[in-house]
Design a binder for these strands. Structure first.
Length: 315
DNA sequence: GAGACGTCGCATTGAC
DNA sequence: GTCCATGCGA
DNA sequence: GTCTC
């Protein structure tokens, strides 16, 4: 895969981040969608551009195609340069800080003049952030914690590296007698070469016991959150693991939903709408009535589709 | 050309 | 303490 | 900004 694809995607993500700060909503999604398409492209973006078929990429229309062309020809994108010049803050670094999104970044700038991570770190250490609307003492310490984590954050893990971990967790949960089903979903189930995190789906009559077991597996660095149906933690090696517990009646729909890909879900959802249904992680509904949900096969069948293997759910 | 663009659980605040 | 609104993340 | 209707 040409390295250019990755660069183009990165640039589009950056444009999205800056637009996000300006309060744009749908353009942001549009740029991120285009970026994701290009990441997943099987051909080199340069070849696609040469044959003038950029607009055939999902999410790429006239405007973005033009910008990609510009970048491939000149190595720059004026649109992004302009956004950067206009922006008072360094979105690239600030947006990478956990728990900070566009709204909070904007507020930190307006109230404290925070433009980059150095300013942020200083403000947090001086306890200036607590007290701002929407921030408390806890938010402040989370920011500091996240700033300390920057290096270990965000890498993707080779599949081989996570298989033993996934299996360990799966076996541990499966051995519990309140657990009916366990599946490792997400890109792991789609058998991608790398995974960003591990997603685990469980059916159980006693979610709280499952949560408890999950939060006590070996090798936990820290937990990110825990609720009745959902928990997230980070292992010593930096891998994030998310757990979700659902009812048996929703198992199939949840499998589909959490296995993804996102594109695949969007496609299914559209097909569902066209047929007068609504599809979500809980099931396939006609009005308020669930017509399918306990198995994947059932949901696909009801949508008029043959079963699609997880590996083939990229689009 | 107009209108939609996913949706929801969780953490945290802040009001009561 | 409970309940709500908001932002974030997925 | 892009896609669908």
């Amino acid at each position: 895969m040409a390295a250019k694809n990755y660069q183009v995607a990165e640039i589009l993500y950056m444009v999205a981040d800056y637009l996000d700060l300006e309060g744009e909503e749908f353009k942001v999604r549009a740029y991120r969608r285009a970026a994701r398409s290009i990441e997943n492209l099987s051909q080199s973006i340069e070849d696609v551009a040469k044959s003038g078929k950029l607009q055939e990429i999902p999410g790429v229309g006239e405007a973005i195609a033009k910008k990609i062309d510009e970048f491939l020809r000149t190595g720059k994108m004026e649109h992004l340069e302009k956004l950067k010049r206009k922006s008072p803050v360094d979105m690239e670094s600030l947006n990478a800080v956990e728990s900070l999104g566009p709204k909070k970044i904007k507020l930190l700038y307006q109230r404290l003049g925070v433009r980059n991570v150095e300013h942020l770190s200083k403000a947090a250490k001086e306890a200036k952030i607590r007290g701002l609307p929407g921030f408390g003492e806890l938010s402040e310490s989370k920011i500091l914690q996240s700033l300390g984590n920057v290096s270990s954050n965000k890498r993707r893990f080779p599949r081989e590296e996570v298989v033993p971990i996934a299996e360990m967790i799966r076996k541990k949960l499966q051995s519990m007698n309140v657990v009916e089903k366990v599946e490792v979903v997400g890109s792991y189930r789609r058998k991608k070469e790398t995974v960003g995190d591990l997603d685990i789906l469980v059916v159980s009559s006693s979610p709280s016991e499952v949560m408890d077991a999950f939060l006590n597996i070996d090798g936990i660095d820290h937990t990110i959150g825990e609720g009745e149906k959902k928990a997230s933690l980070v292992l010593d090696n930096g891998l994030q693991v998310d757990l979700r517990v659902v009812g048996a009646e929703s198992y199939g729909a949840a499998l589909i939903y959490f296995t993804g890909s996102k594109y695949h879900n969007i496609r299914l959802r559209k097909i569902a709408i066209k047929k007068g249904y609504k599809l979500n992680e809980y099931g396939l509904f006609k009005g308020d009535e669930m017509v399918a949900g306990s198995t994947e096969e059932e949901v696909y069948r009801e949508l008029g589709l043959d079963y699609i293997d997880p590996e083939n759910r990229e689009e």
